[in-house]
Simulated assay, not measured.
Amino acid sequence: MKKHLITCCLFFISLWGFSQTSSQCARSLAQAELAFEQGRLSDIINTYTDEASGFTRCLNGGVFSVEEEIRAYKLLTKAYLFQDDEAMAEEMFVKLLKADKEHQLSPEDPAELYLLKDKFKTEPILRVAVRVGANKSLPSVIQNFNTFQVGDKRYNESGAETGLGIGFWFEALAERHLTKGIEVATGIQYRIASYEVEGDLIENDLNYVAKNTSNMLRFPLLVRYSLNYDKKDKDGNRKKILPYVFIGGSYDLMLKAKYVDTRRTGGTAYTLPDESEDLTASDQVAKSNISIIGGLGARFRVGRSEVDFFSMEVRYDNSLFNYINPDNRWVNEDVNFGIGHVEDDLTLNTLSFSVGYTRSLYIPRKRKQYR
């Protein structure tokens, strides 16, 4: 009980001490801003260069809030500018940009500060995006094949036997803004896609179900155009919602493909043996493919500086080439004659929905012409 009491006392003492320090730091910043309004620029600079001053200890000691830190570095930038110390003004401005990545100047800021900002690249050098989504497979049959089948095959029907062909994917992209809302992105994606086929054999009371699941490693390259990228609202703030459209392509590398829950029902039941499930070992599927990609989405600015994004996206992937290796279509007798299923020539297309998060990476630096 005594230990808990001592711990509580120490906690409240430290909290009170921090509150007092924070209050003192707020006063020191207010005094520095008052000195600027009164034109006492040398006083501000002398206070900053004095490591024992409360203003400097608060700034270097991390006591200032982020907002106070931004105000302090902006104040120092202007003080050095008006003292014609360009080197120190640039140093303070870089520290300001580290605290506020894309700091927006206000109409009240002096022209000298606008000129200084123009010397620096304030846009991100790179953005890193991660996305996770669900996809629905949409097989597009090029040519039908069968052994004993009666009628057409049914792909991804909802019901007791077949499902909807739902899969999942995860993606990591590196993105770069080029100009006027146009961006390029490339990276890597891991996708699980599946489709399910139901067919009738000889008579309608004898049928089969074949579920094909594939794991792919994909390498997308995308071009995106974002609306509102550089636009501001009537109050001068950057617009928070950025709708976009994109197109691109992907090189798709097959990692694994297999049958899952593949069986014949009605009459004499038959279940596919485990050793017949692997389609990659028997080279029944194409080892690689190329897809074209298109979609639309929206990004929403998040965070205090609103330089990162939460996003939602709808995407369509269209494979260009046959998912099946036609030379080895008939190699699996357990599937062809035991189940009664033969894979059609088809392209494996997907419609997907995803959510993601984009992190902006910055290195404040002067433009080449000013170096």
Rank of each mutant, 00 (worst) to 15 (best):
I293N: 09
K234D: 14
P110W: 07
N336F: 07
G39V: 00
S42C: 06
L348M: 09
C8G: 13
V307P: 09
K119Q: 14
L279D: 02
N325Y: 02
T147D: 06
G187R: 03
D118F: 11
Q369E: 15
S319Q: 12
K368D: 13
K232C: 08
V197T: 05
N322M: 04
E86D: 13
F36N: 09
I182A: 00
A52I: 11
K98C: 08
C9I: 10
L206K: 13
F12T: 12
L34G: 11
L96A: 03
A35G: 06
R154T: 14
D84T: 08
L97W: 00
N322C: 03
G151R: 03
F168I: 11
N212L: 09
R191V: 10
T47G: 14
T147W: 06
E51H: 14
T271R: 07
E183R: 15
F310K: 04
K3I: 13
A174D: 02
F55E: 03
S65C: 09
I293E: 11
A174T: 03
L242W: 07
D317C: 05
A87G: 13
I125G: 07
E33H: 06
L255P: 01
F246I: 00
N328P: 01
E203L: 12
Q24T: 15
A89T: 01
M88Y: 12
M312F: 12
K287L: 11
T186V: 08
D283F: 07
S65N: 08
L5N: 09
N322G: 00
